[in-house]
Design a protein around this nucleic acid. Structure first.
Length: 267
DNA sequence: TTGCATGTTCCGGA
DNA sequence: GTCCGGAACATGCA
């Protein structure tokens, strides 16, 4: 599930139910999802602190913690990544937990539940602003705020397929397999075109498609699978193109499943 | 039972 | 040394 729009949805959950509130306790039911932090450190560093406004970069969600009202550079930040199956959900303490709730933050009459089925990624704690920067500095600009010129310059530097380049978090952060297919379909570009062989016109089309897809999916808090979206065709057998009704093709591009329209997106 | 899944990272090879 | 594609990771489902 989680690509940029989904993580944006989780950011809103954290903001609505966490910002300005004190974390009374942290429940760790599966320490496997903790990366380079022990349950004990998590208790010591997080409990009693207050959540400041959460931020998002690509698919990473950041929850800065404060002990006073001032921002200090030596305060920790909770760092969430959701892998392929994670999520952050709000619940009241009486609501029964879910089997895959791994970490729960108790905040003033509410619970924020980090749920993850496959445990491919997890939660970290950056000790201060420097280590937060260290953790994220390999990421490219956020896909929702990159400029057209910067995207062009970054794609020019890649000879891999355009699909892989779009999903490469060091090129730009936030796009995953579903969004990449959706954007390429809207831009009428074949997923296997080498990124550095796109013409200027094609790059502009790609950028516009990305803006539209991100705007609409961030609003929904997920990649919509409603009519008119390629995503809706993903699990349909012999699905046809929502635009021209040609039967869609499915293959593997750079190791990942790719769905595209042979008429709209010629090789 | 086998293969596949929306994520990232590591390894071998070009 | 650099860059790319593919495998590996953990787990549940069709």
């Amino acid at each position: 599930m989680p690509e940029l729009p989904d993580v944006e949805g989780f950011r809103r959950v954290l903001d609505r139910h966490g910002t300005g509130r004190r974390i009374d306790c942290v429940r760790v039911s599966d320490a496997d999802v903790l990366e380079s932090v022990s349950p004990r450190e998590l208790h010591e560093e997080v409990e009693g602190r207050t959540l400041a406004s959460p931020r998002r970069h690509g698919k990473w969600l950041l929850g800065p913690l404060r002990s006073g009202s001032q921002h200090r550079q030596d305060e920790p930040t909770l760092v969430f990544h959701f892998g392929m199956t994670g999520g952050l959900f709000e619940a009241s303490p009486e609501e029964p937990g879910h089997q895959h709730d791994r970490i729960v933050l108790c905040v003033e009459q509410k619970e924020l539940r980090y749920r993850d089925l496959r445990k491919l990624r997890g939660i970290r704690l950056a000790a201060d602003d420097d280590s937060l920067h260290e953790l994220l500095h390999h990421l490219g600009p956020d896909a929702a705020s990159i400029s057209s010129a910067e995207l062009r310059q970054r794609l020019q530097a890649k000879s891999s397929t355009v699909k892989r380049a779009l999903m490469d978090q060091t090129v730009l952060a936030g796009l995953g397999n579903l969004l990449a297919d959706e954007i390429l379909w809207r831009a009428r570009l074949h997923p296997s075109i080498p990124a550095n062989e796109l013409s200027e016109t094609e790059q502009k089309r790609l950028y516009r498609a990305m803006r539209t897809v991100l705007r609409d999916s961030m609003e929904a808090g997920r990649v919509p699978d409603t009519s008119g979206w390629l995503t809706a065709c993903r699990d349909v057998q012999d699905a046809s193109c929502p635009r021209c009704e040609t039967q869609l093709k499915e293959s593997r591009v750079s190791g990942r499943k790719a769905l595209w329209c042979p008429a709209c997106q010629p090789a």
